[in-house]
């Protein structure tokens, strides 16, 4: 069986194609595609966490690892360029074991209660985050509520670097946040942990949009969750074009109980790649009355 590559993130018109074997099936992808692209083309579902199609791969989470013939260690599929003749196994005992352990490790130290996809994968790989003794070290950070637009709950942070990339080189070029500290004590932080309003943050919300675990949340969502009223399954999503300037960003207005509760932009939109500015993201109060808010500390 030969699957033909059809992922629009790589240059499908590239002249050089490489053939790579995924679980015994030959897959043809253009040069420059990753092993993950090849897995997708082969129809193999691969768990990822730090990877996003609109950000540079940092290959830090190691959830997407696969086994490659001739390599001593497993390789991160999200960032390894596919090369002619590679022989990849995505479901060997080693692969399943490492993926399970990564999920277990995360579950043992981080609050994954709002990371739905990770929960599904944890079940799939049989991860048991409870086998690490009575009191494994956890992140243990209080929620940071410093303004009316978003909250930061680093107890849920898996350190995927996505927010740092979205704030920095990959989208916003504001560089308000970075990884600080080292090892298990590493945290996403502003300089000297000053508050977001004091920092360089411009409130574009692009970090919130890329966060995979809900460690970063829009305040609207946080407030609704706090009172048990967050019901994403009921959301109606209306796509529109932002009216503030002439760039033409697509907006997706998420509406619950006839109220806008969140604004996103599609990752595959060729103007935004999923990223917005403060006006598109938060400047919708003029279409509805201000809703009740929880306290800011």
């Amino acid at each position: 069986m030969t699957a033909v590559y059809n992922n629009n993130t790589a240059d499908a018109s590239a002249e050089v194609a490489v053939t790579i074997s995924i679980d015994g099936a030959d897959v043809i992808v253009p040069e420059g595609a990753t092993v993950l692209d090849a897995c997708n083309a082969a129809g193999v579902d691969t768990p990822t966490l730090c990877y996003a199609e609109n950000l540079t791969a940092v290959n830090a989470c190691r959830l997407c690892v696969v086994e490659m013939d001739g390599s001593r260690t497993l390789i991160p599929s999200c960032s390894r360029p596919a090369e002619d003749g590679m022989v990849i196994k995505t479901d060997s005992e080693r692969v399943r074991h490492s993926r399970k352990m990564v999920l277990e490790f995360l579950g043992s130290g981080v609050d994954l209660s709002q990371a739905d996809e990770l929960g599904t994968w944890s079940e799939f790989y049989g991860a048991d985050a409870d086998r690490y003794g009575p009191a494994p070290a956890r992140i243990n950070e209080p929620v940071k509520i410093q303004d009316d637009l978003y909250i930061r709950d680093y107890d849920k942070c898996v350190l995927c670097y996505k927010c740092v990339e979205a704030c920095g080189d990959d989208a916003q070029h504001t560089f308000a946040i970075s990884v600080s500290g080292r090892g298990f004590d590493a945290r996403i932080s502003t300089e000297f942990d000053i508050t977001l309003p004091d920092s360089a943050c411009v409130y574009c919300g692009n970090c919130v949009a890329v966060c995979p675990t809900n460690a970063l949340q829009f305040k609207t969502e946080f407030d609704l969750r706090t009172v048990g009223e967050w019901r994403p399954e009921e959301h109606e999503v209306t796509t529109t074009v932002c009216s503030y300037c002439g760039v033409g960003c697509n907006l997706e207005m998420h509406v619950q109980d006839n109220t806008i509760v969140k604004v996103t932009s599609p990752n595959d939109h060729d103007v935004t790649s999923g990223h917005l500015c403060i006006k598109g993201r938060f400047g919708w109060q003029y279409v509805q009355p201000t809703i009740e808010r929880g306290p800011t500390t």
Binding site: A60, C61, S98, F105, Y132, P136, V158, L159, F184
Partner: peptide
């Protein structure tokens, strides 16, 4: 190793802590 892990990747960042906890135990 717990102290010196850079913290970038999950297996080492968390695994080194869990190994240390196991030895303390």
């Amino acid at each position: 190793f717990r102290n010196e892990s850079c913290g970038q990747c999950v297996p080492c960042r968390v695994g080194a802590v869990r190994q240390h906890e196991m030895l303390v135990e």
